[in-house]
């Protein structure tokens, strides 16, 4: 095949995969393509996407952030604990707590030169400890009045569309904006695609890495708030089982784990693929227990299709 055509195909592979999956599920199960089902699906994807969008920035640099699920859980705890006393102030407080953990991760990564895999894993441990300590290891329910007073922007609907979808779209818009219009966004790509050249060009590489860690943790905290709002509780284990699907969403979308190639836009497609596969299987009547197996196989196949080997000299 002509290399240019092949490259073009690889570029659109994730979205073709998504369309194909939607069609397959749609043909197999009439109910799936109804507007209401699709809205629910989109709303369900929102939290996963927000978290994955944050990780995208770190993966673009060639790093990884394994702290996100712990940070999200901690943020839900902070929010649930502070809502009664601070009201709306609980939200920025939860975000700030996440950002601080991201800062700690970034400092360990750039200053202590600990690989991001390890530093983020460790910071995840710290986040979990904090969440357990704050919550007294319990789940913290959010009262009915509090929910009505403060959580309308997470649980309500606007223009007939669930608020979560709006939140996901806002995050998407902000991330695309950051990617496209800020120095940080451009520098991230440059560092991921060619760190030595970025260094020689005077790009403040350490600062870019630090910022990416902060952005990732802040978005994880935001995802934790949305999830906490949906479940009307904060819990130190709230976002467990979110980490690996979130990383999978990034990679399935076609962002390379080696860095330099990718976009939050691709992560959205990836998150939708992961969701469609999960929800679609239920619609198709796939045995709940078999779903995990299918998910694993689809993940591997999706990466096989979307990955651009020309940009990875040695596959590790």
């Amino acid at each position: 095949m002509n290399p240019a055509v092949a490259a073009r195909l690889r570029d659109v592979a994730p979205i073709l995969t998504l369309i194909l999956l939607v069609l397959v599920v749609g043909i197999g199960s009439r109910g799936f393509l109804s507007p209401e089902t699709l809205l629910v699906l989109a709303a369900d994807t929102s939290t996963l996407f927000i978290m994955a969008a944050g990780i995208t920035f770190v993966i673009l640099l060639g790093g990884i952030d394994l702290s996100v699920q712990a940070v999200a859980s901690m943020s839900s705890v902070v929010m649930a604990l502070l809502l009664p006393s601070l009201g709306y102030g609980a939200f920025p407080a939860a975000l700030a707590a996440g950002a601080l953990l991201g800062l700690a991760n970034g400092l360990a990564f750039t200053r202590l030169r600990v690989p991001s895999f390890i530093s983020s894993l460790a910071v995840g441990g710290i986040a979990t400890a904090l969440a357990l300590a704050f919550s007294g290891t319990r789940s913290i329910p959010i009262g009915e009045e509090l929910r009505h007073a403060y959580l309308w922007w997470i649980t309500g609907r606007m223009l007939g569309i669930p608020a979560e979808i709006w939140l996901g779209l806002i995050v998407l818009a902000i991330c695309l904006f950051v990617e496209r219009y800020t120095l940080f966004g451009r520098w991230s790509l440059a560092v991921g695609a060619g760190e030595p050249a970025a260094v020689a060009s005077g790009v403040p590489v350490a600062l870019v890495k630090l910022l990416a860690c902060v952005v990732s943790a802040t978005l994880a905290a935001f995802a934790g708030m949305v999830l906490g709002g949906r479940l009307v509780a904060g819990s130190p284990t709230l976002a467990n089982e979110f980490l690996l699907p979130a990383v999978a969403a990034v990679v399935v979308g076609g962002t390379a784990l080696t860095g330099g190639v990718g976009s939050v836009w691709r992560t959205l497609i990836g998150a939708l693929i992961v969701s469609v596969v999960r929800v679609g299987m239920t619609f198709l009547g796939v045995d709940v227990f078999v779903q995990q197996i299918v998910l694993g196989i689809v993940l591997i196949l999706a990466v096989w299709i979307t990955i651009d080997r020309a940009k990875i000299p040695i596959v590790k």
């Binding site: 990383v247 784990l257 998910l295 993940l299």
Partner: peptide
């Protein structure tokens, strides 16, 4: 053989194994 990073292969495989 498929030249997929071990990170993703083994992640998918973990889902498959738990599923089985």
């Amino acid at each position: 053989k498929l030249q997929i990073p071990s990170f993703m292969v083994t992640l998918g495989m973990s889902f498959i194994a738990i599923g089985i």
